[in-house]
């Protein structure tokens, strides 16, 4: 059930973007998922529905674009579609192939507006947590460098 962690990361990024935009409510979030990531749409939607409660995304819908697997052969320069059980170039048999699509795990964007959302008061803390986390992360990065 890694979809829960994945979806929490989606929502964290969406709330950060919402905060920067000055809008108040998220109406749609768009993702691109590659088939090789083992992320499935049904548990992803389940996690979305569970985690969006009492947040500015509570009325939002999730749009998921799935990508199949396509690779480029570094030896003969062919591009080809394949499934994950055939990681060889079908033209020249080389193992030196580079994945072009299939491992995407990307948040493309979202739609937002300035309508109030139900449960707005409960949500002040969500932003506070995000800001606090971002500060802690920045401090960590500074400590390393």
């Amino acid at each position: 059930m890694h979809e829960m962690s994945i979806m929490q990361s989606v929502l964290d990024a969406a709330f950060e973007a919402l905060k920067q935009s000055g809008e108040t409510r998220i109406t749609e979030i768009s993702l691109t998922i590659g088939e090789q990531t083992d992320i499935q749409e049904i548990p992803l939607n389940f996690a979305f529905d569970a985690l969006k409660q009492n947040t500015p995304a509570r009325n939002a819908r999730l749009r998921v674009k799935m990508f199949s697997t396509r690779s480029h052969c570094n030896d003969c320069a062919a591009d080809f579609d394949h499934d994950r059980f055939s990681m060889l170039c079908p033209i020249c048999g080389s193992v030196d192939i580079a994945l072009l699509t299939g491992r995407e795990l990307r948040i493309d964007g979202m739609e937002a507006d300035s309508q109030p959302f139900e449960g707005a008061d409960e949500n002040v803390d969500i932003f506070a947590d995000i800001i606090e986390e971002a500060r802690a992360e920045a401090a960590h990065t500074l400590k390393d460098s």
């Binding site: 990024a13 948040i107 937002a112």
Partner: peptide
Amino acid sequence: MTHIDINKPILDKNDRLAQSNKELL
């Protein structure tokens, strides 16, 4: 209604901290 481009890896936060782990190691 505003469209907001995000265009980031979903695991961006995990990956960035992982990268900092890698640099430390």
